[in-house]
Design a protein around this nucleic acid. Structure first.
Length: 671
RNA sequence: GUCCCCGUAGCUCAGCUGGAUAGAGCGCGGGACUUCUAAUCCCGGUGUCGCAGGUUCGAAUCCUGCCGGGGACACCA
């Protein structure tokens, strides 16, 4: 990168880091998405203005000192950790120290007054050892401007796939994590102006479905825990069948026969299978619906097979040197996707996608020696369709009412074209990293490098059980592990419906009045927040007692803060509000500063495809507001102070409402 | 065996694109409601940031090795 003339540096602000705590892995595909979102935002935030002021100061300084600046500088303009450091701080002097070969403190001292002179919002600037520029800001104009960021609608369409529970039993908390994370990603992308289509993949041809099915057909099963729900019944039935399949050759043969019958599709077994999976999907969707999670399209694996999507994908893929028909050895008779991870595979193009990645097995079977397709093969076909690269389409029908559309045997005209995505976001736990990379590799091998790049796998850690919760479920915890996995095959897990009932009960028991939001809605907010506040890469060690908590860093705390703001505003509904500026108290400043961060947090969350940033931000905002609320009367404030406090409270209500909407939590006016 | 993720307060977790005295919630003890909802707030924490080296003016953060936990590497999904 060649140096330009003095004063020409672009400052790359990474300013949102401090408010939210940055996560994310910095993958390029996520950053691209972020840039698109950033470009669409209308208007500048307070922090944007400040960063621009710092940039002007740097340019002026470089001119005066005759210093050549590089094209870009990575600089943070961020809130200070302590009030005595001012409102915002920047590390720009450290970045310049390396370029100019001068002491950071000297640069900071030269910069501080220039920022104050060149940025109308900065009322004071100080250099602090070892080289920070600390800025004090006039927050008042920020309380007069527009409340919420707006984004120009983007022409791009993103398909978000999440949930994708095997339709053979009830959904558990682990599935709910995918659903909640995916749902927030969909809400977030819509919020920043992107077109979104939400898919739920129904794997109705898999081994798990076959197991529940043969239990239904061959077992005289009575549920040890009588239930009115079919998915609860299947939960126990599946565990019973899994026990038999593990050891009994007769049941293993039944499983194979059922799998084969499901894939053939024109027989009684397949029809019973379809009736079974339809009913289970219906109940799973009811569960998710209670959490305000909705889908645009259900994609059935059986429809991918029936429509012959794989035949077209195979025709294309077989022109690639990566698809190999093995004639000898362990995989004789299989069609294999060769990843190039084996060093002996010379001559294959690389690097592309996962090629040569030592994490992966060099050969991935797509077509078994008996001619049937593996899961990855069907997923490749599905993704070619998602990206509109297949010249083929499904049949569709509506599931009625507000429900999603679904792929079907016989179609009716869909309301709009499904699929044809510019980007695809798959919310799938980290155990499928390998399978997702295989899909990406196949897309690249077919020449769809753009699609391979536009495929984002949002990988997240599994939900496991705390020792206490595992013990309550009858798991043997004598091994003393720190967590225990949920296991559908063993019937071990917290079902979504049970969790909601338990948390709802806890909410009902702890509430001080009954007139506000229903206990179920509060429970939904509590559970959603619990699943969102952990980093995506973190394995959530789920504890029932912790999930039942409604105090502290929980969903109800955020909702309560919103209800308090609403309550205050009801009291002052008729009070006239003026624009007369006044100095803010420390708590007011802290609150104003947090409010000013919202546009950047939205952008960064969209860029990183990371809902946790939103959860963290909303909690901090609720916390700042609550502290303000405790110490600053609004309705009973002196007239000189009241207008500013009403403005702050109004803004808190709107920004918190916006944040809660994106998080899918209720924003109650009363609790 | 190879590779990936994780290891921070009693517990669950933030912080980790290097920077100013390492944070929150829970739990525990104490305090605050005739005042905009106390589902709240305030006070009380030196914790071998797994261990050992290294890079740096500066490391919880980057690099290497080791130890411990989890996961992936299926003609499962």
């Amino acid at each position: 990168m060649g140096a330009r003339g003095p004063g020409s540096a672009n400052i790359v602000s990474i300013s949102s880091r401090i408010w939210t705590g940055r996560q994310g892995d910095g993958r390029t595909d996520r950053e691209d998405l972020g840039r698109a979102a950033y470009a669409g935002r209308r208007g500048r935030s307070l922090v944007d203005e400040l960063a621009a002021g710092v940039q002007r100061a740097v340019a002026a300084w470089a001119d005066d000192e005759q210093i050549q600046l590089p094209h870009t500088l990575a600089v943070a303009v961020e809130p200070t950790a302590r009030p005595e450091f001012g409102d915002y701080t920047t590390n720009v002097a450290f970045a310049l120290a390396k370029v100019a070969r001068r002491a950071p403190l000297a640069i900071a001292q030269a910069l501080a007054p220039r920022v104050v002179a060149l940025c109308p919002l900065a009322t004071a600037g100080e250099a602090a050892a070892p080289g920070y520029v600390n800025l004090t800001v006039d927050f008042w104009p920020g309380l007069l401007g527009p409340d919420l960021p707006t984004f120009a609608p983007a022409a791009t369409k993103v398909v978000v796939e999440h949930t994708s529970v095997n339709p053979n039993k009830a959904a558990h908390v682990g599935h709910l994590r995918s659903a909640v994370v995916g749902d927030v990603i969909a809400r977030l992308l819509r919020r920043v102006g992107t077109g979104v289509e939400v898919h739920n993949y129904v794997d109705d041809l898999g081994k798990q479905v076959a197991d529940t099915l043969i239990g239904l057909l061959h077992l005289d099963f009575t549920d040890p825990v009588p239930t009115h729900r079919f998915d609860d019944f299947c939960w126990d039935l599946y565990a019973e069948v899994a026990r038999r399949v593990a050891t009994d050759p007769e049941w293993q043969a039944r499983e194979r026969a059922a799998l084969e019958a499901l894939e053939r599709q024109d027989n009684g077994t397949a029809w019973v299978g379809q009736l079974m999976t339809d009913r289970l999907v219906h109940e799973q969707l009811e569960d998710m619906g209670r959490f305000h999670i909705q889908y645009d399209l259900l994609v059935h694996e059986s429809d991918i097979v029936r429509e012959g999507f794989w035949a077209r994908a195979f025709a294309d893929l077989s022109r690639s040197p990566r698809l190999v028909h093995e004639t000898t050895g362990r995989l004789a008779g299989c069609w294999v996707l060769r990843t190039g991870a084996d060093p002996s595979d010379d001559g294959l193009p690389e690097p592309e996608a996962a090629a040569g990645d030592p994490r992966f097995n060099p050969d991935k079977v797509l077509v078994r020696s008996n001619g049937t397709l593996t899961y990855v093969a069907k997923d490749i076909a599905y993704h070619l369709w998602k990206f509109g690269r297949l010249d083929q389409d499904f049949q569709y029908r509506s599931t009625g009412g507000d429900g999603p559309w679904t792929t079907a045997r016989v179609g009716e005209p869909p309301p709009h074209a499904f699929g044809r995505a510019d980007r695809v976001v798959n919310v799938i736990d980290h155990r499928q990293d390998y399978a997702q990379e295989m899909v990406r590799l196949a897309l690249a091998a077919l020449g769809h490098d753009d699609a391979a790049t536009a495929l984002t796998h949002v990988s997240y850690g599994v939900v496991s059980l705390s020792p206490a919760t595992a013990a309550q479920l009858g798991v043997d915890t004598s091994a003393g592990r720190s967590s225990y996995p949920m296991a559908g095959r063993q019937g071990i897990g917290i079902k979504v419906s049970e969790l909601l009932a338990v948390v709802k009960e806890a909410v009902a028991a702890s509430r001080s009045r009954d007139s506000g939001l229903s206990s179920q809605e509060i429970a939904v907010g509590a559970i959603r927040y619990y699943l969102l506040r952990h980093n995506l890469s973190t394995e959530i060690v789920f504890d029932v007692d912790a999930a039942r908590d409604v105090h502290g860093n929980t969903g109800p705390y955020l909702m309560y803060a919103h209800a308090r703001a609403s309550s205050v505003l009801r009291r002052v509904a008729d009070v006239p509000v003026d624009d007369v500026p006044r100095p803010l108290t420390p708590a007011e400043r802290a609150l104003a500063r947090q409010l000013a961060a919202w546009p950047a947090v939205l952008e960064e969350a969209a860029a990183a495809v990371n809902p946790t940033l939103l959860a963290t931000y909303a909690y901090r905002l609720a916390e700042e507001f609550t502290q303000f609320y405790e110490t600053h009367p609004v309705a009973r404030a002196a007239p000189g102070e009241r207008s500013g406090r009403i403005r702050l409270t109004r803004r808190v209500e709107r920004v918190l409402h916006d944040a809660l909407d994106v998080l899918g939590l209720p924003a109650p006016e009363e609790m």
